[in-house]
Design a protein around this nucleic acid. Sequence first.
DNA 1: GTCTATAAAATGATAGAC
DNA 2: GTCTATCATTTTATAGAC
Lengths: 189, 189
Amino acid sequence: MEKTDRKSEILHVAAKLFRERGYNAVSMRDIAKELDIKAASLYNHISSKQEILELTIIRIAEAFTNGINLINSQDISVKEQLTLLVELHIKLTLADPDAMACVNNDWMHLAKQELDYFIQMRNRYEDKFRSILKKGISSGEIADLNVELMLFSMLSTLRTLHLWYGRKKSLQPAQLKADMTRVLLQGIL
Amino acid sequence: MEKTDRKSEILHVAAKLFRERGYNAVSMRDIAKELDIKAASLYNHISSKQEILELTIIRIAEAFTNGINLINSQDISVKEQLTLLVELHIKLTLADPDAMACVNNDWMHLAKQELDYFIQMRNRYEDKFRSILKKGISSGEIADLNVELMLFSMLSTLRTLHLWYGRKKSLQPAQLKADMTRVLLQGIL
DNA sequence: GTCTATAAAATGATAGAC
DNA sequence: GTCTATCATTTTATAGAC
């Protein structure tokens, strides 16, 4: 899982720093210093600062794309699909919280081509998520409320999970998934 | 409401650009260009780029502090307090979505002193929000679930309202408040 | 694979004319 | 209140020695 070669080290250190300070506030010198080398040495492993961002963000975005496609292809109830979506966000967030923070905070700093690709994946993800909610309303499985608001509320919580995880690392993934699903689907009252 | 003097113009333009690209990706030249003046002229109205960020963020943070203090001082049910909290977030977000985005995305770029002040206010805000939830559990008004998770879920949605508003500006504040309260408190099932 | 040296550009900010 | 000119610093990235 964890490659320990130089390139992977650079990507992990960079993601950690990007998460703390944001892409533009982190210099190549900062990344190098964390690895006890000079900035120029980084270029033996990666071609640019932009490439670090691309490799970090696109990988996660593609994982979400693959994940929701798999969930969509299954012939299960809407409630089960939503539960699997919660699980997908939790799994990907816990696997690499630093990279997940980058996806959420620094995607707009991608270069044109990768930016377009990212936005396309994000839009399609939201479209599929929305379709699942609409299907649930049609079938009577979920309440006939404002779909955009339900989508927004769920995605806001799921996408910022990285902010919260870290305070409560004691919580096990399985418990987190159960509690999160309950709160998101049934509310707090 | 809307001061049209130069300083206010600068603050509004800066907040808009910070929201789009982030604090560090916006230069003083960018802000000046938007106002059709030169970067050096900005310094006749503000003392530094840092000051622009401070004036934008601290104002909103203090509004949240005042808002929750007022809600806390009222002798009403927990459900009513939570409804007022939703209303507070909606009111402040709609009043200045650009500045709200700055609060959420660029607070970490505040200078030491203002950063400490901001974090203190944010922590106290979360403590008071958490207390209201706990009081609701004690009184049986809300479900006995993971308090941190409920707090996180509500705050994630309320704090990223600025991301969502703009897509659906058609929605009236009163309707938004009603729908949002329903989704957050009762869930979607 | 890492280093030193350095290029080329951008940045926040100031001085002083008008 | 805005301008031109400029400074000091930082930035990404490259060239070439070891």
